[in-house]
Design a binder for these strands. Structure first.
Length: 190
DNA sequence: CGGATTTGACCCGCGC
DNA sequence: GCGCGGGTCAAATCCG
């Protein structure tokens, strides 16, 4: 037992947007702000920030095979892991994808509960909560302030249930979503 | 009619 | 203490 997390990240959900193109991370995303930043390349290569140290603000873009990295890297550093009471809800993941649609079906049902204009961006930021009762996972969606053709999605929290539609299928462009938090929730009894 | 969305108000932390 | 920026609430509204 190396750490409190033993995530296996395997979740592929459909992306309904035909214009979807995965991309690389932009420098302005401070990856140290997140517990996990993961992007998928157009070639299918996945870039993660899991082997970053907290002092490293620049995303180094470790190109590792996705499944491989998940199986062998069982200790994901959690920024909020310092506070025990925030461990389960503080897990954050950020994506940046090129998409015209902001709503990407990741298999979960989300209820929008807020919209805010952010200062340095002409685009609003939308706040979503998982619709499932008792599940307080949140996600935040906003457009890249530099290139509004990119959408930044930030997941925060740990699902305490399975995906309502346990779909694991993909069209042409699969979107990879970490599903680790459900594992964490099921084994939280320390 | 019930659940999701909208949207301004409210709240809270932080820097001055 | 106050203002600002960001996050959330909740009442009204919309929509299936």
């Amino acid at each position: 037992m190396s750490s409190s997390y033993s995530p296996t990240m395997e979740y592929i959900s459909q992306n309904p947007n035909p214009n979807y193109n995965s991309t690389y991370v932009s420098e302005y995303i401070d990856a140290s702000e997140f517990d996990y930043v993961m992007l998928e390349d157009a070639s299918g290569e996945v870039f993660t920030s899991q082997n970053m140290v907290s002092s490293d603000n620049v995303f180094s873009g470790a190109s590792v095979e996705f499944a491989d990295s998940c199986s062998r890297n069982s200790n994901i550093k959690c920024k909020n892991g310092l506070k025990e009471n925030k461990v389960e809800t503080g897990f954050r993941v950020a994506f940046r994808t090129k998409s015209e649609l902001e709503v990407m079906d990741d298999g979960f049902r989300w209820r929008k509960y807020g919209k805010k204009m952010v200062k340095n961006s002409p685009n609003p930021r939308n706040y979503y909560k998982c619709s499932s009762g008792g599940c307080n996972v949140k996600k935040r969606i906003e457009r890249d302030r530099d290139d509004s053709s990119y959408v930044i999605t930030t997941y925060e929290g740990v699902h305490n249930h399975e995906s309502p539609s346990h779909v694991v299928y993909y069209n042409q462009m699969p979107l990879i979503i970490p599903h680790a938090w459900s594992l964490k929730a099921s084994s939280s009894s320390s």
